[in-house]
Simulated assay, not measured.
Amino acid sequence: MKRSTRRLFAATTLTCEALLVFFATLVAYGLVPMQDRHAGYLAAGGALLLLCLVAAGTLRSRVGYALGWLVQVLLVAGGFVVPIMFVIGLGFAVIWFFALRIGGRVDREKAEVARRLAEGS
């Protein structure tokens, strides 16, 4: 079975982002004064966490990668609730970009090596 390095890198990034979203949701909920707390913060964070996991699980198709890009946009937008998320979200967006780019390059190089080995034997 051929394994895609690109998909592995992308899934790892999205899984790490799911953990980040969990903790950022707790921070956002904790920053709000007790009398203003409501389930909206927890619901939004839970939905984004679920989106991270769904995106990671659907990386066998283009839909998973599109959802991954949506996760990146939403993480950066999370900076409007927790300002440090602008920096963290942008950092993860850069990691996502390079995971796709470098993972794709590794997959192409592995295919080239396999092709050359098949020609040589």
Rank of each mutant, 00 (worst) to 15 (best):
M1C: 15
M1A: 06
M1T: 05
R3S: 15
S4N: 03
R6Q: 05
L8Y: 08
L8N: 11
F9C: 00
A10R: 00
A11P: 06
T12Y: 14
T12N: 11
C16W: 06
C16Q: 12
A18I: 03
A18W: 06
L19C: 14
V21H: 01
F22Y: 09
T25Y: 09
T25S: 05
V27N: 02
Y29Q: 01
L31I: 14
L31H: 10
V32G: 02
P33Y: 03
Q35L: 14
Q35G: 15
D36C: 10
D36P: 06
D36L: 09
A39I: 09
A43W: 08
A43Y: 13
A44H: 08
A44P: 11
G45L: 01
G45T: 01
G46S: 00
A47N: 05
L50Y: 10
L51K: 04
C52M: 07
V54Q: 15
T58Y: 15
T58C: 15
L59R: 00
R60D: 12
R62D: 09
R62A: 15
V63K: 13
V63H: 14
G64E: 02
Y65K: 04
A66H: 15
A66E: 08
A66W: 14
A66V: 12
L67K: 00
V71D: 00
V71W: 03
Q72T: 13
Q72V: 10
V73R: 07
L75W: 06
L75D: 02
L75G: 04
L75N: 01
A77R: 09
G79H: 01
P83A: 05
P83S: 06
M85L: 14
F86T: 00
F86M: 00
I88Q: 02
I88Y: 12
I88N: 03
I88P: 06
G89R: 00
G89L: 01
A99L: 03
L100N: 13
L100H: 08
I102H: 11
I102L: 13
G103M: 00
G104N: 02
G104V: 02
V106H: 03
V106A: 06
V106F: 11
V106G: 07
R108Q: 13
R108V: 07
R108M: 12
E109K: 07
E109P: 01
K110R: 11
E112M: 08
R115W: 15
R115C: 12
R116I: 06
E119F: 08
G120I: 12
S121L: 13
S121C: 13
